[in-house]
């Protein structure tokens, strides 16, 4: 197994300042939001890598950088050895782009309501001038819908069926990698199970690699081989699934696991987590988690912890052992 995706020192800064005129009049400084800060990881071929984190953790931004919707400020993403941001050979970029596709969170917003399902699904191929005869019908059957659905419009389908259509569209250009941005968080539990099963089946059949972005720990635990935990744009911990769930090293991961509701936690009283996620425009100094961390010492507010290996886990914490 080799790494199909290499993410190195990825950083993305968004300028969220008000317009120039307002800034001058109100004497405001530029506001820079660091959505992703120095993140490095690798994804092995035919595996599922999950990024988990709460809002503002930068997990969606990483997904968008990976597919080329957002450009990185610093660092690089290499897909099959090609860096989309710095590569100059247009043919290579084109080849890599068709290898990576994306499934979005909201199945109601990710299909053009005015297009027939056939045209939606075939678009990735049609845009390249490829042959689309029978393509949509074949893909519809592959994702568990009927070929007769090709002539319908998106509003005739339920949320789960729409997500299947999105998967069919993602498969149209024969990709090797699919970035899944919260693919089931808008779906009901019973439908979520159907979609997750379909994704597992397709991965086996087609040898796909998934980057799975989610805030739902139960879904991640079911799907992922390897998991990266993000907090405020920083990767705080990364480990194989079972290692992470059995022995979380980072205090943030531990807090997250404790806070997640348990199906068998009848009447469970937990000590509610301290504090809130800080503002990403002015993140805390040193380790971003230190104001909420039960283990924090003086060093944590001064020095940003480096990633270090403890057993099979990579963790960015001064105190973890």
């Amino acid at each position: 197994m080799s790494a199909i995706i290499k993410v190195e020192h990825l950083t993305r800064v968004f300028d969220v300042s008000k317009p120039l005129l307002n800034r001058v009049i109100e004497r405001l400084p530029r506001a820079l939001l660091t959505a992703v800060s120095d993140v490095s990881f690798e994804i092995e071929e035919n595996s599922v890598y999950a990024l988990v984190g709460e809002s503002g953790s930068g997990k969606s931004t990483i997904g968008k950088i990976m597919v080329g919707l957002v450009a990185p400020t610093e660092g690089s993403v290499q897909i099959s050895g090609v860096d989309l941001a710095s590569e100059t050979d247009a043919a290579k970029i084109e080849a890599v782009r068709s290898e990576i596709q994306m499934i979005f969170q909201d199945p109601f917003a990710s299909l053009n309501p005015r297009w027939r399902v056939r045209d939606v699904i075939a678009e990735p191929v049609a845009a390249k001038g490829g042959d689309t005869t029978g393509l949509a019908e074949k893909l519809l059957e592959q994702v568990g819908l009927s070929a007769a659905d090709a002539g319908k419009y998106p509003h005739e389908f339920s949320g789960g069926q729409r997500q299947r259509i999105c998967i069919a569209r993602a498969l149209a250009s024969n990709p090797r990698i699919i970035v899944c941005d919260e693919p089931t968080s808008a779906l009901d539990v019973s439908v979520q199970a159907q979609v997750l099963n379909l994704m597992s089946d397709l991965r086996e059949e087609l040898g796909l690699t998934y980057l799975f972005i989610s805030h739902d720990l139960t879904v991640v635990q079911h799907m992922a081989d390897r998991i990266g935990v993000l907090y405020l744009g920083r990767l705080v911990e990364e480990a194989p699934r079972d290692v992470l769930f059995n022995d979380p090293k980072h205090p943030y991961t531990q807090m997250l696991f404790a806070a997640a509701p348990k199906m068998d936690g009848f009447g469970r009283e937990i000590e509610a987590p301290k504090g809130e996620i800080p503002d990403a425009i002015n993140p805390p100094t040193g380790c971003a988690f230190h104001p909420r961390c039960p283990l924090a010492v003086e060093r944590c507010s001064r020095e940003r912890p480096e990633m270090r290996n403890i057993g099979k886990t990579r963790v960015a914490c001064h105190m973890a052992e």
Partner: peptide, 24 residues
Amino acid sequence: DGLMASTPLASAGLKRLRQIPGAM
């Protein structure tokens, strides 16, 4: 029963989740 079984946690360790066919 199906709702409980189809939550990922209930099928921990299973390769596939139990699913209720169809939709409401």
